[in-house]
Structure formats: C-alpha cells, structure tokens
Write a protein that binds this DNA or RNA. Structure first.
Lengths: 194, 194
DNA sequence: AGTAAATGTTAATCTAGATTAACATTATTT
DNA sequence: AAATAATGTTAATCTAGATTAACATTTACT
C-alpha cells in the first residue's frame, strides 16, 4: 500500500519520527472506489477521513427542490470528506461521490483519538488542516457575495486549471452557483472578448 | 477582571483543573472598546483572539467598489476575531468593528503556543472551536446557494432573534447579501402575509 | 456501426434582486 | 427646540442570471 502521499502531506505541517510514521501507517486503510460510488451520503456520520491518492470526487448537497449544489471538488493530495461531520461526528449535510475511479487512504474516527494520544502532534496537524479549510470557506463566502458569476468563473479557472479539464461543465456551473446555460453564455462571452 | 464567562465557555468543551484555570487566567487581558472602534483591520495580522464579555461587533469585508459585506456579528460569549488570521498569522481579509461599546478578553498569539504546551487540552479546545466555525461557514455557503433572500432572512431571525433587535436593519441586509431597500421590501411582504 | 444517454449550446422570455431617487422617521448633537 | 446625521420606506426602472425549450455534439453501450 502506498501511504507516501499522505505522509509527505502531513510532514509539510508537522514532523513525524520514523516510529510515529510506522504507527500512523498501521492505522490507515487503502481503498478503491469506482466512478459513481459514494464515499459519504447526506445524513450519515462521516466516520472515516479520506485522503485522495488518485481520482476525483465532488462534495455536494441536494436541496429541497432536488437541485444539486457542489461545495468542492477533490483530487490527488486533497481531503475527500466532510471534515465537519468527521470531527464533530454529527450527520453530514453533504454527499461525497466519485466522478472518476478513485483510490484513497482512510483513517477511521475510532482510531483518531488513539492516534492523537500516541502522537499528540497530530492533534495540531488536524487543527491546522481544519483552519485552512475554514479560511478557504470564508473566502468562498466573500467571493459569492461580492463577485459576478463571470469573475468567479475566472478565479476558478485560475485556481484549479487542472480540475476544469477533468469534470463536465455542468458541474463547474453547479460549483459556481449558476445554471449550465448561463456558464455556457459566460464562456462564449469570454471567447468573443479576445 | 471577570474571566468567568470565558472559563465557563471553555469548560463546556474541555475540563480545566483549578491550577490550569489560574495559569490560563494569568495570560489573558481584559479590554474595553468604544462603539465605532476597530478591533482588527483588513490587511493586519490578527495577533489577539477576542472573546466578548459584553457588547456587539461586526466582522466585514470591503470590496473593490467600496461596498461593505458583513460576514458575522458577535455578541456576549462569542469570538470577535478573524480566527483564520489568528491561527495562521496571515493578514486578515476582514475588519472587526464595535457596533456597541464592547468589553472583551484577549489572548495574545505570542502566549497561545505557551498555553498549548502548558495545557495541551487547549490545543484540542481550539481545534473544536475552529471546527464549529468551519461547519457554520459551510452551512452559510449552502444557504446562500440554495435559498431566497426572504428565506435567509427568516432563518436569521430564527437563529439570532436577540441580535436583530440590537443592530440597524441595513447591517442585517449586508449580512444577508441584499440591499437595505430589498430587505425593506421583504419585511413589508412578510407583514402583509399574516 | 448504430443507438441511447450524457453533455453542451443558443435564443426567447421571465424574475429576484439592484439601482436610483425622493421622501419619512428616528437619533444625536448643539 | 432646532438642526443634522443616521436610518428606514416606497416606487420606477434596470439587469444578472434563471427557466424553458429546441437542437447539437460527444461519449458510452449493445
């Protein structure tokens, strides 16, 4: 099993000894999902945190009218879970579904407390991970408030050029909070500009 | 100095011994601000976390067109800071300004590492605080995506009935992401309904 | 290869909410 | 008490983006 990507990721935040790495590795599980499979469903408690080794997922929410709203995409070296539900162990408002065949590493919630006590640095590490997620979330609120759909699209392209290639456009539209028709309009508008 | 509200708040999340409480208390600072004063300004690093004892603040962002967008309000027993900037020690995108005379307790960033090492439980405590903030932030994104301004207003009233009484309506409008004129329209619409 | 399903485009019409502007009410200051 | 500033309302007009619908293109399946 290849746990290296996750260890490298963690070692950018804290420094684990070899022993600690070994112990940490003993607690993680490697798992593959097929395109279309769900890693998490709305209403379930997210009892495993997932780190993506390869593939692509979307985290989304289905509203009362059955409309799907994508909160985020996850690709290699990203977390593919509702961190909020994981750490609070409360039912999630979100679904996480694979939009490509996806390989990931899981850490079960039941193991994380043990990991925190054996390797206290991990508590700090996860605090920092959540912090980053929180900051990104706040930025997203600000953008949705004060920017037009066109500007949000341009920012998305700039921030995630690789992701745009890998997913259908109607999902990008959902992420941006507009209809696929309107995104189509935005794109043709941008095209005629240059 | 009255540090009791903060200690009660923290003791709901973790349990501090008397010694720990004493040490914690030795590191905090009590401070008063007048209505209109800024606790944090856009571009500055937030080097003190603030817990509100009394009063009311708004956290907001000024966009390129000079428009103000309120991200959150803070009242008694809430945090009145950009937690993201505090923990990452990166310049804040936000301002925090008092909309009433406000008394608060501060913990300087320079002291927090020391506190974490002396009282490791605090690391967990702050992780949990951030988690809650993150979950609330995600919920906000979802709401802004899939709900009308009227529904968002009704949710705001339901969640924060006390706050609505204390702040001018145009700030509620800014929080909801609509103009004050439109909020006025929503209110008269609601009034004629019943 | 041929068919069905998924995805993307264009254009016409509609609507939630913005903008502008004039006026009303409430606080605050002198 | 008057004057000024801050806040709130109403109505007319405008616009970003939604909705509907018809069609085009690409992908996946048999």
């Amino acid at each position: 099993m290849n746990s290296q990507p996750l260890l490298s990721y963690i070692n950018k935040i804290i420094t684990l000894t070899e022993e600690e790495e070994t112990y940490f590795t003993s607690k993680i599980v490697y798992r593959k999902y097929l395109k279309g499979q769900y890693i998490l469903q709305q209403g379930d408690v997210n009892n495993k945190i997932c780190f993506i080794i390869s593939g692509c997922v979307k985290m989304f929410y289905v509203d009362d009218l059955g409309q799907e709203h994508i909160l985020m995409f996850g690709v290699e070296n990203w977390w593919a879970s509702d961190l909020g539900s994981y750490i609070s162990q409360a039912p999630s408002d979100f679904n996480v579904q694979c939009i490509e065949d996806t390989a990931l590493i899981q850490v079960a919630y039941n193991d994380i407390e043990d990991l925190y006590s054996k390797i206290p640095k991990l508590e700090r590490c996860f605090r920092i991970i959540i912090e980053k997620a929180y900051v990104a979330s706040q930025k997203r609120i600000v953008r949705n408030f004060s920017m037009s759909a066109k500007d949000r699209y341009l920012i998305f392209k700039e921030n995630y050029p690789e992701i745009e290639q890998r997913i259908p456009q109607y999902m990008v539209a959902s992420y941006l909070g507009v209809t696929k028709e309107f995104l189509s309009k935005i794109k043709s508008q941008i095209a005629t500009e240059q």
